[in-house]
């Protein structure tokens, strides 16, 4: 059940990323280029996604179990700690350099784009590096407090 849900979610998420323009680095960079010719389209992506997800998370917060019977694993971390701040600042630099974030990177590999594959391999190495340097949130939640 969970695997079927996950596959469907991946397909819908991926289709949404394609339709929205997020899989096009030029489109993302056009949004991040406030001082040049600015393309505000990606604000509509976030607006649309949040409009729908706001309702779902409002419902999810009041439930202890998901529809597949498993416990609802809502993130538990509360503190705005230095790791959150540093990590987000670093992520933004990488995002601004190539115009690619993790979801669209995977979808672009699905387009059989070799550059996207190089990006994803580097991203996985970056994730491993983070684990190896051992910088961890001081009080992680039970499971999946990561978003």
């Amino acid at each position: 059940m969970r695997n079927i849900i996950a596959l469907a979610v991946g397909l819908i998420f991926g289709a949404g990323l394609c339709l929205s323009g997020m899989t096009e680095p030029a489109k993302v960079l056009g949004f991040l280029d406030l001082a040049g010719l600015w393309d505000p389209s990606l604000a509509f992506v976030m607006g649309g996604a949040i409009a729908v997800a706001l309702v779902a998370f409002g419902l999810a917060k009041r439930r202890r179990f998901a529809l597949d019977g498993e416990a609802m694993q809502m993130p538990t971390a509360r503190a705005i700690d230095p790791l959150l701040v540093a990590g987000s600042l670093i992520f933004g630099i990488g995002w601004g350099l190539a115009g690619i974030c993790p979801g669209p990177a995977i979808v672009d590999v699905g387009f059989l784009n070799s550059r996207a594959l190089v990006f994803v391999v580097a991203m996985a190495v970056g994730m491993l590096a983070q684990r190896l340097v051992g910088l961890r949130l001081p009080a992680p939640g039970p499971i999946g407090q990561d978003a």
Binding site: V9, I12, V45, G47, A60, A66, L67, E70
Partner: peptide
């Protein structure tokens, strides 16, 4: 872009309500 955003929101909604997990690619 709005249409794509709605689909992304729908996918996140299905994952949290259906499986109780956050749809974060990273």
């Amino acid at each position: 872009s709005l249409g794509g955003g709605l689909l992304i929101g729908l996918a996140a909604s299905i994952l949290i309500l259906g499986a109780g997990r956050i749809m974060g690619a990273a």
